[in-house]
Design a protein around this nucleic acid. Structure first.
Lengths: 294, 294
DNA sequence: GAATTTCTCTGACTATAGTCAGAGAATGGA
DNA sequence: TCCATTCTCTGACTATAGTCAGAGAAATTC
């Protein structure tokens, strides 16, 4: 498997890497072209360019001066905070960006051009698979404090979604509690899934001493469905729980969340009699896992 | 389709491009690392390094001096031609190369690591597809003179293969002629398929004035089977023939070449009564194509 | 045997893509 | 109000990855 990955890397850097970057730039240096691209039609502030491209502030500044000298962008102070500077494309800058875009388009076409129609369809399908799975591989999971803004964002999204999907809406106060303090060590664990630093999913454990631990707040962003994030969150939560000495997990869920129910079933959760009086639940699940490795 | 290709390019350069190159080098510059890699355990002459990596001779020379200074390679004159210099890895150089190899291996593993087993299998399969089809897309087809060494290589390979696969072997002199002069404009056309400059397939046309043209010498290297090269050669030959005013093509083939027979059938060739007395043929095919575009 | 070509090397340059250390202006918190 | 912090900018540097023009030695061609 690994050797296939390496062969893939070789071929793809030959064809995509070499062409994509260098070829697109041409009239500008690669750095300028990337910057022009990243600024986008709406304009952007310098700070977000810096973090977005991962460049040194001095370097970004210099690139902007050179784009400014070429009359491709204008840089002005932001209205709200005069330390922050805002970059916008000039008319010429927009044209230039369109040219870059057009080149990328042609590059992509030229990659498909030599193939037969059947091969094209197969290649594009395989590319979609690779893209999806590589994106999945870039998702990072890490425990964070439930008061962290990223955790809060996930929890708000979770509430919004449940409220939308449950037939009767969802009122967290009528439901069994999962307050911040309950999801923070040592009472619990809050796990965040993020892609490029942006939160895209979460899951939590609420420990009950010797009693089975509860899985709570499992949520995956719409934009990240189908990447297996839910399964990985569940796996990681179980592993964390196991490290904490827990060998039995419980959870309850609403019949509206069919994909979650499928996930639990296929992850080894077995439906059991109701073990609590959660008003929004239709299904109660339990799973025993092997104890922590010797 | 094109937008999928572009999304693929973006993701893949992010993940493969950025990591692969820079990450591997570490102790050396990227140029040195690439060179170390390309030299290989067997050693190589400077010339092939230069063409293989596509670098300026001065630059290659400088890189070699720096590797030599680090005692990773030795450079000595070739036995047969004292202008040519031979590069070999020292013991330390081999160790260093193994370290690079190991890093590439780990990189590849780390790409798979976050995925579930099912996802890994899917990703690797999709990568194999992409690799195969991108390789196919890199194959170039161009008419060349049949006396060109690359054409000669293909023709020799063709003869060897037919001799091997025909039940009774193959003696070109008993077969209908397809001499160099017959496959060269204006009498004919010889089309070469090459990958990275190396010949991997060929096909030819022998014109007969107003009479149907003959397709001859269709061959694809073992190493390039399954890439659709045969079909593209045939397509291109027909297009060339059409541009030359030919609208009917004929060919005959031996029953041992089943994959070729399938190719002809699925490309619109219809089996017809024998139109010549080729002693090695079991099937005769014909195809009429639309005239050249208005 | 002379002229030409091939192969590698050196020296002198260049552009790109940075990094690092401050400085100055604006903002936010105590 | 003052102090620390944030944000951007400039100046001074560096490493990498080249390019280009020739020179010298060996081989090939005429």
């Amino acid at each position: 498997m690994v050797s296939q990955v390496r062969r893939f890397n070789r071929i793809v850097t030959q064809r995509v890497g070499a062409l994509e970057d260098r070829f697109l730039a041409r009239d500008h240096s690669l750095g300028e072209a990337r910057m022009l691209w990243e600024i986008g039609p709406e304009g952007r502030d310098v700070r977000s360019l810096r973090t977005g491209l991962g460049l040194d502030s001095g370097y970004v500044s210099r690139l902007l001066r050179s784009l400014e000298a070429a009359r491709l962008v204008t840089v002005g102070a932001s209205d709200t905070d005069k330390r922050i500077r805002n970059v916008r494309l000039t008319a010429a800058g927009s044209v230039e960006r369109a040219v870059l875009d057009d080149r990328a388009e042609r590059r992509a076409e030229s990659l498909l051009a030599p193939l037969t129609p059947v091969q094209r369809v197969r290649l594009v399908a395989a590319m979609a698979d690779v893209e999806r799975l590589m994106t999945a591989a870039m998702v990072e999971m890490a425990p964070i404090d439930p008061s962290d803004p990223r955790a809060q964002y996930c929890l708000r999204s979770y509430i919004r979604e449940l409220n939308l999907r449950f037939e009767s809406g969802w009122d967290p106060s009528r439901s069994i509690s999962a307050a911040e303090a309950e999801l923070r060590p040592p009472s619990g664990i809050f796990l965040l899934a993020s892609l490029h630093g942006n939160p895209i999913g979460c899951g939590a454990i609420k420990f009950h001493g010797e009693e089975p631990a509860e899985i709570k707040r499992m949520w995956v962003s719409d934009s990240a469905r189908g990447l297996g994030i839910g399964r990985r969150l569940l796996n990681d939560l179980e592993a964390q729980g196991a490290a904490h000495g827990t060998s039995t997990f419980r959870l309850e869920t609403n019949r509206a969340l069919q994909e979650a129910i499928n996930l639990y079933r296929s992850s080894g959760y077995v439906e059991v009699a109701p073990f609590n009086d959660e008003p929004y639940a239709h299904h109660w699940f339990e799973k025993r896992i092997a104890g922590p490795a010797k």
